[in-house]
Each structure stands twice: as structure tokens, then as C-alpha cells.
């Protein structure tokens, strides 16, 4: 089929959008290896920025905090989102719509608002200073919403009659879940975990207000950006981008292979 002018211009739009999105990212990755970060031409490469980044005690402390925060938030999000999605799809209840709305509500509240309202609530109502756990919980609110949507998207195609079949043949509910349901839906649980992990890892505004003085990678980057774009920021951006793309590559492969092998398609 010959592509018409409409199709051609749409593909041009797609190309331009990619350039727009990836131009800055590509430039950052390139420059992170450059000797002169202001005008990195002609190319001359060094790993100095990475050496500085890894030897900085501030960044390594921030990294530890971000990892802890993200892991905690991702575990909470995945468990709550999976239970919620299964409950809503599997069991009839007149509260189904209400529950669905509650689970997606955090998507419609800006990070800044989550951050300051949790700060105000913790500090003035509960009397809690900023700490890692409340930051985990605050990030998990958003993670739960994203995870819920991801799991729901796969779970709507799951046929719950399969669990009935397994039960008739002698499987107890828990056995049923691990033998039948989980093998079919685990890619979406894994996807929910990864997405909520990355979101919490890179979140600035929620973490910033709920953590107090505890540094995370985004907050240190924020602090450093106030004084201009340093070489170590280029290196950090390059590393985080690399990490995100690795995760997306894994998810892509899972969806490509996973849906073919695990997705329940009726027959």
C-alpha cells in the first residue's frame, strides 16, 4: 500500500517528536563523557564525571536512600495494587465503581500537592518529622495507582472460570492463585513493580517534602542544578536514563514474549 500525504506527515510528526524527546537525552549522554561539557566539540572523551560522581559521598548516600525508598514504595504499591485489581475484577460488589475511582484518584493529584499536603499532615497532625517511611508511603500512593492500571489492563483479559476449573479439580484457593492465576498475570505484577520503583526512585516533589533533610538522587540533583549544570549531573542523567531504558527493554521483551506465552486468549 502506498502511503498517502496524511500518513507521511504523521510519520514525520512521530520522527520530530522522537527528536524532541531524545535530542536532549542523547546530548546529555554524549556530553557526560566529554572533557569540555560546555562545548564538547571536537569530541574528546573522559570518564572523569563518572569518577567524581561515584567518589562523592553525598551522591552515594543519596543513591542508597533512593534505592531504599523506591524498593519500599514498589513493594507496597505492587501488593496493594494487585490485591485491589483482583478484588475489583473477581468479586461483585456494589462498591466496585467507588473502589475503582479511589484507586485511580492519585493520578489526578499533582505531585506538588501530594508532597505539601503529606508534609503538612505529618508535621502538624501526626507530629512526625520527615522520614524515609512516610516518603515511602507517600510515593506508594502514586505507585499504587499506576500499578493498579497496569495490572488491571492484563487482568481484564483473565478468565476467572479457570480458577473455578482448578477448584473443581481439587485446588484450594491459595494453590489456585499460585498454580493458575499467578503464572498468567506475573508479567503485569512485575511491570507494576518496575514502574512504581522507577517513579519513586526519580520522584522529586513528593520525596522532597516528606523526607526533610534526607537526600535522594533527585533532590541532590535539584540542589546542584541551582548552581548550574555540572559535569556530574550529566553523568547522573546518563546513568538514570540508561537504567530506565534497561528496565523498559526488559518490559518490552516480557510483553512481546510474555503475552504470547502467558496471556490468556480465550481458547
Amino acid at each position: 500500500m502506498r502511503a498517502g500525504p496524511a500518513t507521511l506527515s504523521m510519520s514525520a510528526a512521530l520522527g520530530l517528536l522522537y527528536v524532541f524527546l531524545y535530542g536532549p537525552i542523547g546530548y546529555v549522554i554524549y556530553t557526560s563523557f566529554a572533557v569540555d561539557i560546555v562545548w564538547p566539540f571536537p569530541p574528546s572523551f573522559t570518564l572523569q564525571a563518572y569518577v567524581d560522581l561515584f567518589s562523592s559521598s553525598l551522591y552515594s548516600e543519596a543513591l542508597t536512600n533512593s534505592l531504599t525508598l523506591a524498593t519500599g514504595a514498589a513493594v507496597i504499591s505492587t501488593l496493594l495494587a494487585a490485591a485491589g485489581a483482583i478484588g475489583i475484577l473477581r468479586f461483585r460488589s456494589r462498591y466496585r465503581t467507588a473502589a475503582l475511582l479511589i484507586f485511580i484518584a492519585p493520578l489526578f493529584v499533582a505531585d506538588l500537592l501530594i508532597g505539601i499536603s503529606v508534609l503538612a499532615f505529618n508535621a502538624r497532625v501526626l507530629g512526625l518529622p520527615g522520614n524515609l517511611f512516610s516518603a515511602m508511603a507517600a510515593n506508594a500512593i502514586q505507585g499504587t495507582a499506576f500499578g493498579f492500571l497496569i495490572i488491571l489492563a492484563q487482568l481484564v483479559r483473565y478468565n476467572w472460570d479457570m480458577d473455578d476449573a482448578a477448584m473443581v479439580f481439587g485446588a484450594k484457593p491459595l494453590r489456585c492463585f499460585f498454580e493458575i492465576t499467578l503464572p498468567t498475570i506475573w508479567p503485569s505484577l512485575f511491570g507494576a513493580f518496575l514502574i512504581s520503583f522507577i517513579l519513586a526512585f526519580n520522584n522529586l516533589e513528593i520525596s522532597f517534602y516528606t523526607l526533610g533533610a534526607i537526600p535522594t538522587l533527585p533532590s541532590v540533583a535539584w540542589g546542584s542544578l541551582r548552581f548550574g549544570l555540572g559535569a556530574e549531573l550529566f553523568a547522573l542523567a546518563a546513568l538514570v536514563n540508561g537504567f530506565v531504558f534497561l528496565v523498559f527493554a526488559v518490559m518490552y521483551l516480557l510483553m512481546r514474549l510474555g503475552i504470547v506465552r502467558f496471556g490468556y486468549r480465550g481458547g
Partner: peptide
């Protein structure tokens, strides 16, 4: 998913 701050940093680089 790279986060707001690093994306702004990248944009500033350009």
C-alpha cells in the same frame, strides 16, 4: 520515568 529534574537538566543542556 527519568524524573522531572534530570529531564530539565537535559533540556538545559540543550
Amino acid at each position: 520515568f527519568t524524573g522531572v529534574i534530570l529531564r530539565i537538566a537535559a533540556l538545559q543542556g540543550l
